[in-house]
Design a protein around this nucleic acid. Structure first.
Lengths: 226, 226
DNA sequence: CAACATTAAAATACTCAGTCTCGCGAAGAC
DNA sequence: GTCTTCGCGAGACTGAGTATTTTAATGTTG
């Protein structure tokens, strides 16, 4: 514990130098020197200069993938929301690092593009998962694409808000709200799609039925259709 | 017409060489030589090697921006769908180029990331436009993010399908279908949001009302709420 | 302990993208 | 005619990323 790993030392050196002198002004040699190792060693730990800023992205991506795969058709929605929560939690757990990186990425176009590309990889994961989940249903590909994009967008919206606010609150509530919004959005379309476009479903209730009873009946009806 | 512009010659040389020898194996010197100009000239026309593949992206982005700005609150949806149609049309008009680029981008990670980054710029444009459009309404930011992501995802889904099929059909129909799906999706949420979460709206009809009449009444009701 | 094998790190050389500066030469401006 | 402008070429330079070789540290075995 007295001697942190070389990978850590390199990452810290990189962030520190980027903060002090700017990204473009910092060379890999500078980073390696600050970490007390050689240039070669830097490239053994990180594939590129940008990678030093996004160290554990591959790990997180694998975690998300694992969470998605560990689900059946019936628990698909839970798997998706869980996976998103995992990603957000990863940022929140390292609020300090996340915030510094956020400020840095906002100033360096190269890093910005890099982050966007990695977000796209998450979206691809979700799209594939939802695609196989919906396989066989009408417009499966389109819906998978839209849901994946929406889920990721919801996460990004919540994360950005949290980062802009300096990470001063717990974003779990906002995330649940946003994800609920997404799920409600697409669930609304399940009914007419499954009933067919040219079929009208009319639910009738006694005039004396309470609003709660109406809502519960509708909920039960929607939930019964996977 | 006998002498195409240097910019064109460079772009053609680049694509040809990428096809023949691969992207990484082609140097900027090769491209310049093939186009009969110097290396310096290449960089005067394109900021980077990747840029030679995405020449008119800035122009298209500006066109989309202009189309969005040229709209009032009442015509926002039309502006969005129009803008998306403009983008898709741009690909379809140059089917030959689009297809070659598609195959190339699919094989070269660097180009892939680049394209994803430029897609994100379109999404940002849509997000900002929808954001100002919805300004003041509840969850404006979240909804802007989701709608923008969905609109772009719908476009990409249609475009990818068209490209995978070799550009052999007119994708206007699929695009309209996809956009209609998106619009319907989010319109469904307008009602409960505006009515408030704790209020239940129940529409009653005479038992003898025809399904068509029911549908029309619902449509009219939804349309009346911007 | 000595000879050997394994492996992380250093050293070095190389390619090539991207930037910058300078100089040329040809097209117009007056 | 000279003078400016501007597109282009030439060449030098920085730095990322790759590949190869060399050195040093840490075992491992007899």
């Amino acid at each position: 514990m007295g001697t942190p790993s070389i990978g850590h030392r390199l990452a810290e050196a990189a962030v520190a130098l980027f903060d002090e002198n700017g990204y473009d002004e910092t060379t890999v040699d500078d980073i390696a020197a600050r970490a007390g190792v050689s240039r070669s060693t830097f490239f053994r730990y990180y594939r590129s200069k940008e990678d030093a800023i996004f160290p554990d992205h591959d790990t997180l991506l694998a975690t998300v993938d694992a969470r998605l795969r560990a689900s059946t058709a019936g628990t698909a929605i839970v798997a998706v929301t869980d996976a998103v929560r995992i990603v957000l939690a990863h940022y929140v757990d390292d609020a300090e690092v996340s915030l510094r990186r956020y400020r840095l990425v906002g100033r360096v176009p190269a890093l910005r593009d890099r982050e966007i590309a990695s977000v796209a990889r998450y979206q691809r994961l979700f799209r594939e998962f939802i695609g196989t989940w919906l396989a066989g249903t009408p417009d499966a590909d389109l819906r998978a694409e839209l849901m994946a994009a929406s889920v990721v967008a919801a996460h990004n919206q919540v994360l950005r808000g949290w980062l802009r606010a300096g990470g001063m609150y717990d974003p779990s509530g906002p995330l649940d709200h946003a994800l609920g919004y997404v799920i409600a959005t697409f669930r609304h379309l399940e009914q007419p799609k499954e009933a067919g476009d040219d079929q009208v479903v009319v639910a009738t209730f006694s005039r004396s039925t309470s609003p709660q009873a109406v809502m519960e009946a509708i909920q039960a009806h929607l939930s019964s259709r996977p």
